[in-house]
Write a protein that binds this DNA or RNA. Structure first.
Length: 296
DNA sequence: CACTCGTGGGA
DNA sequence: TTCCCAAGAGT
């Protein structure tokens, strides 16, 4: 009778200890706040772009109370070009709630974290695990892809997180708390560095010898199409263009300046400006000009 | 569940 | 050059 196969985490954790990157939010001394800031910034944004901004933020605002005390406009400007600037507003709002309702300490449970703006299932689990060392299931796009291949035998996971992802991920988490904490970051790192979406480096993979996708001959993806992100001419591009104008000057901006920045569709420009105001990313002034939001 | 919300670098 | 997509969340 064959022994149970060694769990995936043994090899993946060993690989991580040798090959994982030394990122500043991964140091043993990183505070829960530092981890939380990194997780928000890393939502849909690559590590290389996050790192310098993360350093600036933690130097300026080393605790939630520091961030809670500044204006939304300061936060949006400091967010720079990380993208999805509503994340900056929500992070500030989370800091306000942490300061007012949690004694300035980042909550230690997923349920409490989930009540904070900008924190969803992934980020709540990540903070609990990476900042507080708790055993939990952390599922991001990397985890889904690695396990879809290694366990599921397919090239890519479904377009959105589904039951198969949760079941595969839950089954792999080691029982021991410390092992689980390493596994959760290790499997993400494997997905980021080796088991990548486009051109996986299977020759460098510590579990290639037991990967179901490799064993199947690396079949191409067969499932429903992953939607591409349209960009040219979209409201997202328009909003980004308008916000860039406001971000790059400390002074309020006239409507004429904004019109020059987006000339292709005036109706769209007005709609997007309205939506930026509604989101709290832009503040209309009494004199007709626009600015990054100053109030709370 | 499907869709929106930025940005820039690599293939 | 064009296309893909990167530690998701909110609606």
């Amino acid at each position: 009778m064959p022994a149970d196969p060694e769990p995936l985490w043994v090899e993946v954790n060993a690989w991580y200890l040798r090959h994982g990157r030394d990122l500043p939010w991964r140091t043993p001394t990183a505070s829960a706040w530092e981890v939380l800031v990194s997780e928000i910034m890393l939502q849909q944004t690559p590590v290389a772009r996050v790192e310098p901004v993360w350093r600036e933020w933690l130097e300026r605002w080393p605790t939630p109370a520091h961030l809670a005390a500044v204006s939304p406009g300061d936060v949006v400007r400091a967010w720079g070009r990380l993208g999805y600037p509503r994340r900056a507003l929500r992070l500030r709002e989370a800091a306000v709630a942490i300061t007012a309702e949690h004694g300035g300490e980042v909550p230690r449970t997923e349920a409490e974290l989930l009540t904070l703006p900008g924190i969803g299932v992934y980020t709540a689990a990540a903070v609990v695990c990476f900042a507080h060392g708790e055993r939990t299931v952390v599922i991001d796009t990397n985890v889904r892809r690695v396990l879809a291949r290694a366990v599921g035998g397919v090239a890519l996971p479904a377009p959105s997180l589904d039951r198969a992802d949760r079941e595969r991920a839950t089954a792999q988490v080691p029982a021991d708390r410390a092992d689980a904490a390493v596994w959760n970051v290790a499997v993400m790192e494997l997905g980021a560095l080796v088991c990548t979406a486009r051109a996986p480096r299977c020759g460098d993979c510590p579990i290639e010898h037991r990967c179901a996708w490799v064993a199947a001959g690396r079949p191409v993806y067969e499932g429903p199409a992953h939607r591409g992100q349209a960009w040219a001419g979209t409201d997202r591009q328009c909003r980004g263009t308008l916000l860039t104008v406001l971000r790059e000057t400390p002074d309020p901006v006239s409507d004429a300046d904004l019109r020059r920045a987006w000339t292709r569709d005036e109706q769209q420009r007005l709609r997007c400006l309205d939506s930026l105001v509604a989101d709290g990313l832009v503040e209309p002034l009494a004199d007709g000009r626009f600015a990054l939001p100053s109030g709370s």
